[in-house]
């Protein structure tokens, strides 16, 4: 299987979010994968070069300075055709959902979204992926080539360094890049904290945190003590306590950190779908019957306002 990996970029920098897609390629086709990175004056290419790719292709063009699907998709489709790729692959993110499904449309290719396992049987690809809000796992058979695939990051993990460096090659953009939609701006960002989907530790809060200041003080305080990222439930986001991009769950982000601390999070099915692959889960909740305790490795039935300041201090002292 010849794989073309599409690197996640914001138009200027290559993101480490690409790494699970590289881990997927190492497992499926270790000797036959190429990585494509698109942007303008791309930085951090070295993020991609240590994992055995045959080549890292870079397309730099002023029209590609922001990741617009309408502009990126034809570049990817062009290189997928040139390479004769059997699979076009990226890590599942809003970037890849937006761009790669358009690539599938351009190539008239079937697409497997957010897969957690893949094998080949009788000449068909057989993939597993979460369906029905991650309440179930579906097994899908796909015919034909190429196939477009996004891989669920936590299921594939990090690639192994090979010790060698892949050659970086400058590649052409196709002659015509459509430029109808324009990028106007981006609000938000993690404010110096690690990216939620990349962080080793995530501390999440629910609606009982009352307001943005309280949320930041308690959840942000513990996250900073642990060097972690901040997450939130949909209820917390919907009630304006936390910004949208912090939402963990089926309609938000999927995270699988080494340590996930759920504070005043009841543990709805939708929230669990976004975090239950975490290595160690801690739940702190006043309700001993809260569903979050059914998935937690360590549960503490307590009022967050009473225990979080002490927990934050203990963590600070233990790390000092």
């Amino acid at each position: 299987m010849k794989i073309l990996i599409v690197a996640e970029t914001d138009g200027g920098r290559v993101s480490e979010k690409t790494l699970p897609a590289i881990a997927f390629a190492q497992q499926q086709s270790p000797d036959n994968f190429t990585i494509l990175a698109i942007g303008e004056n791309l930085q951090c290419i070295e993020t991609l070069t240590g994992y055995g790719a045959q080549a890292v292709l870079t397309v730099n063009h002023p029209a590609l300075a922001k990741p617009l699907a309408e502009r990126y998709a034809p570049v990817i489709a062009h290189h997928a055709r040139q390479l004769g790729a059997d699979a076009i692959v990226a890590t599942t993110t809003t970037f890849s959902r937006d761009v790669l499904a358009r690539v599938a449309g351009l190539l008239d290719a079937p697409m497997l979204s957010d897969i957690i396992a893949l094998e080949t049987a009788n000449g068909k690809l057989v993939a597993k992926r979460p369906i029905y809000s991650a309440n179930l796992i579906g097994t899908f058979e796909v015919e034909g080539s190429p196939v477009v695939i996004t891989v669920r990051g936590p299921a594939w993990g990090k690639p192994n360094p090979t010790g060698a460096q892949s050659p970086v090659q400058s590649a052409e953009a196709p002659a015509a890049i459509p430029q109808r939609a324009e990028w106007l701006g981006l609000q938000g960002g993690s404010g110096g904290r690690p990216d939620l989907t990349q962080a080793r530790v995530v501390v999440s809060g629910g609606r009982p945190l009352k307001d943005p200041e309280t949320f930041e003080k308690y959840i942000g305080g513990l996250a900073d003590a642990l060097g972690g990222a901040v997450g939130a439930t949909r209820a917390a986001v919907d009630s304006g306590i936390a910004p949208n991009e912090l939402q963990v769950g089926q309609t938000g982000k999927t995270v699988a950190p080494e340590l996930y601390i759920a504070v005043a999070v009841s543990g709805s099915v939708q929230h669990l779908a976004g975090m239950k692959d975490s290595k160690v889960i801690v739940a702190i909740n006043t309700d001993p019957e809260a569903p979050i305790f059914q998935v937690a490795d360590y549960g503490l039935v307590a009022d967050l306002y009473q225990v979080l300041p002490e927990l934050t201090e203990l963590v600070k002292n233990s790390r000092a």
Binding site: P110, G138, T139, V282, G299, L311, L314
Partner: peptide, 29 residues
């Protein structure tokens, strides 16, 4: 070209232990 051939429940995660206070929690972590 794509067919759903099997549907199954995801592997269940087991509940762990209850801790009595934050000192025990930090020690276990």
């Amino acid at each position: 070209r794509m067919r759903l051939v099997k549907v199954e429940a995801p592997p269940a995660r087991k509940a762990g232990k209850r801790v009595s206070d934050v000192h025990e929690l930090v020690r276990l972590l």
